[in-house]
């Protein structure tokens, strides 16, 4: 069993400004642990977590692959979050490389078909559009949950870039809520980008029914590459 990263360095002040890891975070950790063996075999070089918040998930990924075998890039729109991400890396002896920006922002052109493991625990709570966009522009803790219509407005923006970011054998893990309409996300990603997907784990947590979806290229488009 891979231990949950140590977050004891985060203060109450930090957790007023940054999303405190909760059931959704832990479900993503459980999914990654379940997939650890298969992921290690792929020898991932570049991992990118969008919306890293406390840094808990990337630190966990670092424990799976080891400090020196991958690069752990982390982005968050909230500058308190990137500060916490850096600190959580240090606390857990995994060097995380945080960048304050929206989604994959300044990385997307250079990381074209280069990300081996892409993670996104998005703001998935359904709200109105205004609430989601004002949360994004104020770049504070509300940006970690306010998801707009169907809780999908921010997620949809990243979904447009996923195929471009993923390396030939790359995998993308997305946290979703049942209300986000998971079958529709899956069929859209297949039709628009040829990415196949599978729900790897699901759990009811209080009022929320949470799922982790894994996306990858189809066997055909991913094979043939020896690099």
């Amino acid at each position: 069993m891979i231990p949950t990263p140590d977050l004891s360095h985060l203060t109450r002040h930090d957790l007023e400004q940054v999303y405190d890891p909760a059931e959704d975070t832990f479900l993503l950790l459980d999914a990654l642990e379940q997939e650890a063996e298969a992921l290690r075999k792929e020898r991932p070089l570049i991992c990118l977590e969008v919306g890293s918040g406390s840094g808990c998930v990337s630190a966990f990924l670092g424990k799976i692959f080891g400090q020196s075998s991958s690069l752990y890039l982390c982005t968050d729109i909230n500058k308190h979050a990137t500060r916490c991400t850096l600190a959580t890396g240090k606390q857990n002896k995994i060097l995380l490389d945080p960048i304050t920006c929206s989604l994959a922002g300044p990385l997307s052109s250079r990381l074209c078909h280069a990300v081996d493991v892409l993670l996104f625990n998005p703001p998935y709570v359904p709200t109105d559009t205004d609430e989601a966009s004002s949360a994004q522009s104020s770049a504070d803790i509300a940006g970690s949950w306010a998801g707009g219509i169907d809780g999908m407005e921010i997620t949809n923006r990243l979904l447009q870039d996923v195929e471009c970011l993923l390396s030939p054998r790359g995998r993308f893990y997305l946290v979703a809520l049942k209300q986000n309409d998971v079958p529709s996300i899956q069929s859209r990603m297949l039709e628009d980008f040829g990415l196949t997907s599978q729900v790897v784990i699901e759990r009811r947590a209080g009022r929320e029914f949470l799922l982790i979806i894994r996306f990858a290229r189809t066997a055909h488009s991913g094979s043939g590459s020896t690099s």
């Binding site: 690069l71 890039l73 490389d97 300044p106 052109s109 250079r110 990381l111």
Partner: peptide
């Protein structure tokens, strides 16, 4: 920390800035 490995993966992403932005 901006290490040079990270710097090598960052480009300017201002709207319309698409050439010589890296």
């Amino acid at each position: 920390m901006v290490r040079l490995i990270t710097h090598n993966l960052l480009a300017c992403h201002v709207k319309g800035c698409t050439t010589n932005n890296f």
